[in-house]
Amino acid sequence: MTTTDRTGPVDLPGDLADATFTASLPNVDVVVNCAAVQYVTKGVPLLFRKSFFERNNVLAAKNLCERYRFQGSHFIHVGTSMMYRQTGQDQYDIHSRMGGEGVYSRSKMAAQAFVDTVPGAATIIPCIIGGEGREGLFRGFVNMMTKFGLVAFPGHGNHKIHMVHVLDVASLIYRVAETRAAGFFNAADPDPLSIRQWIDEISAELGVRHVRKIAIPLLPVKWISSLSGYRLLAREQLLMLELQHVLSIDESLAIGWRPQFSNARIARDIAVHINRSAAARPGLSRSE
């Protein structure tokens, strides 16, 4: 296996947005493109975010596709469930209408256009990816819960939102590579939870009783986010706070993949990781 990235302990350090570097990559049997930036990525600029996402998400994918399009490699690309046009439907399957909702998901759609030109390519479409180190809004939940015995969140928090463990995403990538499957494959656990249920799982795991849930009206949050150019909360994040976000995994199950982590287990494990990290900082003690 050969790895590449701009930083970190990889075999071939370099920038995939650099066409010269990408052209120098070796021939391989399988290409897995999970190189991308998100809203929470360190270094996302306050201004000129569109060009930042285009360089890292679109240009990198374009260069990889051009390098391996006719080389015979099995090309596997990691997309995002926000590529589906958000309608609040019961669940999204691989035939649901697609279309980017914000600068991030539009960049992923643009990258997908290049992936579609690669013969036999596969795209993994994960929902919210959880696991150790994937904290997102859970850090705020844990901090509010352990310090004040309450959790505030925008929206009503009653609709289901899917998560998937990062190890389950990795195992799906492996299964797609193993079977040389082509097409789209959603990644999710069969039992999604609502935000309110996430809070219940976290409070039970941390032993915090009688947590008060405070639902903040979503409309003012949407207005403020819009005025900030969707820098307070992105379009995709606002839609997920408003609408159900559940994926069908029929195609993934059909090739023999099975997720190992439930959404409840993911929420609990993230909470334990956050609480443990807080306890390791000077002057802080772990909640019992």
Rank of each mutant, 00 (worst) to 15 (best):
L64W: 07
C65H: 01
E66D: 06
R67C: 12
R69D: 03
R69V: 12
F70P: 01
F70C: 04
S73H: 06
H74T: 01
F75C: 10
H77N: 07
H77P: 06
H77D: 02
V78M: 06
V78L: 11
V78A: 03
G79R: 07
G79T: 10
G79F: 07
T80N: 12
S81V: 03
M82C: 13
M83Q: 13
Y84S: 08
R85Y: 13
Q86H: 14
Q86A: 12
Q86N: 14
G88E: 04
Q89M: 10
D90G: 10
D90V: 14
Q91E: 02
Y92E: 00
Y92I: 03
D93G: 00
D93E: 00
I94T: 10
H95P: 01
H95E: 01
R97T: 09
M98F: 12
G99M: 10
G99Y: 14
G100M: 02
E101Q: 15
G102L: 00
G102Y: 08
G102Q: 08
S105W: 10
S105A: 09
R106Y: 08
S107W: 05
S107A: 00
K108M: 08
M109E: 14
M109P: 08
A110D: 08
A110G: 05
A111K: 14
A111I: 09
A111L: 05
Q112N: 13
F114V: 06
V115P: 11
D116N: 14
D116H: 11
T117A: 09
T117R: 08
V118I: 13
P119R: 07
P119N: 01
P119Q: 03
P119I: 01
G120R: 02
A121M: 00
A122F: 06
T123F: 03
I125D: 04
P126G: 04
C127D: 00
C127F: 07
C127P: 11
C127A: 07
I129K: 00
I129T: 08
I129D: 03
I129E: 00
G130S: 05
G131S: 11
E132K: 14
G133I: 08
G133E: 03
R134S: 08
R134E: 12
E135T: 15
E135W: 15
L137M: 09
L137R: 13
F138S: 05
F138P: 07
F138T: 13
R139W: 13
R139C: 05
G140S: 12
F141V: 14
V142G: 01
N143G: 13
M144A: 12
M144G: 10
M144L: 09
M144P: 08
M145L: 07
M145G: 04
M145V: 05
T146E: 05
T146N: 07
T146K: 15
K147F: 09
K147R: 15
F148P: 02
G149K: 01
G149H: 06
V151Q: 04
V151F: 11
A152C: 05
F153Y: 14
G155K: 11
G155R: 09
G155L: 07
H156W: 01
H156V: 12
H156F: 05
N158G: 09
N158T: 14
H159N: 09
H159Y: 11
K160A: 02
K160E: 00
I161W: 11
I161Y: 11
I161S: 09
V164D: 00
V164W: 00
H165D: 13
L167E: 14
L167R: 15
D168Q: 08
V169W: 07
V169F: 04
V169A: 04
L172N: 06
L172K: 05
L172W: 06
L172S: 02
I173A: 02
I173M: 09
R175D: 04
R175Y: 02
